[in-house]
């Protein structure tokens, strides 16, 4: 029997939604290991929304505070998380493979002298060991990996571990972190023009390609995204990013982001192998393209053949 430490994420003092996925993944491991989930939140003070952690299966929610923890503090967060992981004797440590988690998880693993299974899409316990599945070669293959050292440190690919309500006590605890916040200092985040929802995390992604003809026409997709009520982000193919129509942060594919939304709508995108690498794990794919032989239709669950300028406005 061993407990699982779930390292959650906050921004501006509120728990980020991706943390629900982290607790859900941690709960799955803890059930298999016969232990509890302890959720750790690092912040400058109380963090709102942590009560949700109990709902998704945390037995305990520990808020560890430090005056220098309002923004992400890479070194201070890593030390606080590793110290907690060591003192609690956890069998596994679970983080999100978000921008912050991708930076934090390797630091925590190195401090623990433990391996990191990064960006996993599935976790299980087999014969007492944690076994994960993770995409390699930009999603062109899956690797099944057994973690043979303890604790098992894993980071979860966003949008894959659908939050499941598993109410537990979620007993709140607060501790103060001593020592320095670190030499590396995050000054803040300059908001992107597109708004707060990132294509890698949005439950719905509406992506446009060269078929949109010119940058101004992306307005159509932005309107479509808005119609989904704040749940959708606008993505893009590399062709339009290279042409400067859309920012690089919106690019989906091998050299851009890998997304796994519940719904991916590809508009005027041909479906090149490098684009598919970034979105083929979406739950449902819709394609709108005027060429009925476009490769995108091979992976799409639902397709409409026709002129996007007639179809998208609905």
């Amino acid at each position: 029997m061993s407990h699982v430490l779930a390292v959650l994420e906050q921004r501006d003092g509120s728990l980020r939604k991706i943390s629900h996925e982290v607790v859900t993944g941690a709960r799955r491991l803890a059930d298999a290991l016969g232990g509890e989930v302890h959720a750790l939140v690092l912040g400058a003070g109380p963090v709102s929304g942590t009560d949700a952690a109990g709902r998704y299966g945390a037995d305990k929610v520990i808020t560890a505070t430090h005056a220098g923890f309002a923004n992400y503090a890479p070194e201070g967060y890593a030390r606080a998380a590793a110290d907690r992981a060591k003192s609690g004797g956890y069998g596994a440590v679970v983080l999100a493979a978000s921008a912050q988690g991708k930076d934090l998880a390797p630091r925590v693993a190195a401090k623990l002298g433990a391996p990191l299974a990064a960006d996993v899409t599935d976790i299980a316990v087999d014969g007492g060991s944690v076994v994960v599945t993770r995409p390699v070669y930009a999603g062109k293959a899956l690797l099944k990996v057994k973690i043979t050292a303890a604790p098992a440190v894993v980071s979860l690919r966003p949008n894959v571990f659908t939050p499941v309500e598993r109410p537990k006590a979620g007993t709140a605890e607060t501790t103060a972190v001593t020592g320095e916040a670190g030499r590396v200092v995050v000054k803040g985040i300059k908001a992107a023009a597109g708004g707060a929802l990132d294509v890698a995390e949005a439950p719905i992604v509406v992506s446009g390609g060269r078929g949109l003809k010119e940058p101004a026409n992306f307005k159509l997709l932005e309107e479509l995204a808005q119609a989904f009520g704040g749940k959708a982000a606008v993505g893009a193919s590399r062709a339009v990013v290279d042409a400067g129509w859309r920012p690089h942060g919106d690019q989906v594919g091998q050299t851009g982001k890998t997304v796994s939304p519940s719904l991916y709508i590809a508009v005027g995108i041909s479906g090149a192998i490098q684009h598919l690498a970034g979105m083929r794990t979406a739950k449902v794919i819709v394609a709108i393209n005027k060429d009925k032989d476009a490769p995108i239709f091979k992976v799409a669950d639902y397709g409409i053949v026709g002129d996007l300028f007639e179809i998208v406005p609905k």
């Binding site: 433990a114 391996p115 299974a117 076994v131 995409p135 390699v136 999603g139 062109k140 293959a141 899956l142 690797l143 099944k144 990996v145 057994k146 973690i147 043979t148 050292a149 083929r280 794990t281 794919i285 009925k292 239709f297 091979k298 992976v299 799409a300 669950d301 639902y302 397709g303 409409i304 053949v305 026709g306 002129d307 007639e310 179809i311 406005p313 609905k314």
Partner: peptide, 26 residues
């Protein structure tokens, strides 16, 4: 501390379908 058990191709997506043509299919 990591042991590779297997490498597999990603699961095939099951064949989708064309719902229709043009705005009428929306």
């Amino acid at each position: 501390g990591l042991e590779i058990l297997a490498m597999t191709p990603p699961p095939e997506r099951k064949e989708g379908r064309i719902v229709g043509e043009g705005a009428a299919a929306v």
